[in-house]
Write a protein that binds this DNA or RNA. Sequence first.
DNA 1: CGCTTGATGCAACGAGTTGTCGCATTAGAT
DNA 2: ATCTAATGCGACAACTCGTTGCATCAAGCG
Lengths: 204, 204
Amino acid sequence: MSQPRPGGRTARTRTAVLEAVIDQLTETGYAGLSVDAVARRAGVHKATLYRRWGTVDGLLLDALTLFADRSVTTPDTGTLDGDLRDIARSALAILTDRAGQALIRAVVSAGHDDRVAEIIRAFWTRHNTMVARIVERAADRGELPADTDPADVSRAIGAPLYMRLLVTAEPLDSAAADQSAAAVAAAARAGVFTRPAAHGAELP
Amino acid sequence: MSQPRPGGRTARTRTAVLEAVIDQLTETGYAGLSVDAVARRAGVHKATLYRRWGTVDGLLLDALTLFADRSVTTPDTGTLDGDLRDIARSALAILTDRAGQALIRAVVSAGHDDRVAEIIRAFWTRHNTMVARIVERAADRGELPADTDPADVSRAIGAPLYMRLLVTAEPLDSAAADQSAAAVAAAARAGVFTRPAAHGAELP
DNA sequence: CGCTTGATGCAACGAGTTGTCGCATTAGAT
DNA sequence: ATCTAATGCGACAACTCGTTGCATCAAGCG
């Protein structure tokens, strides 16, 4: 590696700065996220931040990258309900995590920076892939219609939780996560998330 | 009324300003919503805005009040599925409306101004009341468990649509609305939105 | 019609913020 | 021990923000 190691000054600075970004977002939201404020909080000169990150969005982007790079694990409980519940609880964990909450709010506020959008897109792609494995297994067990769309399921699991966080400001607890999982299971079993007939093979 | 009439200069100024607020929000988002920008766009001197609205949040609040005061109508199609579909399509209409979209994004970005939060709370209270009527009728028809929680249903209908708008940036179309309605219907019928046993009446 | 009153236009301001620069200093690698 | 890149430092011009005093205007009223 040509990069300085984790113990190097550069890495230490980055850690301190990105942590300061989260702190600042938590306290003041995206509106209060200025380069100066982050610099003061991190104990780093603001010129350094301008040189390395350029803009406020650069800072947000780096913090977001660090956060979104966590791996998505696929549950395998043996039942659709169990798997969906695990996924909902993972989502809950992100949404109640300090950094997760700060970053999600910031992303929504940041309007649509292209680079940010790309990170979000990549995250959901991975998430959908993970859900697809669950769905496939459930279909093999006969718990679900074979043409169930994983993207629909993926979105539906998280939606009520994001709704509580961003829109209605309601509490985020495990009961909410479990209810969301149960609702998705019921809807999926009922065939609501079935893909529209693609090439009319089974038409009369 | 001691207020100048709708044709008065004051009223005309207010209309022009609030329209400018929506335009500005649409183009730049909450981050770009400055008093100066709105003043320029509305063709009104900024001192006037500071005198009447005080701050940027005052402007947003007034625009939001004007928008949120629209009445919520209760559908009555005779079936649970029909009613839920109507509700989902109403939500879709708000979420695809220019002003609605601008204001919803702004509210999420505005962090939590107390007065804004109060308006949101009031909106959802009315919405929940409306859904409660639907749910009650459906329960009377035997389409739903009697102890179905209207707030759960209310939240679940809108959630996938808000999710598409705010989080995943996916398209908002009537297919999405109808799917959401169908999913909620299936989940509600399955008893997912049933209130937890309150005073243990039916326990062994 | 002319008068009164409150709302608006106008220009200027001081305070604070933002992003950049040249140069000195330091930490880490070789 | 030395070299290099990263950081610290202070100053700066350009910009934004909110306020103020005064002139002007529009709407209602007799």
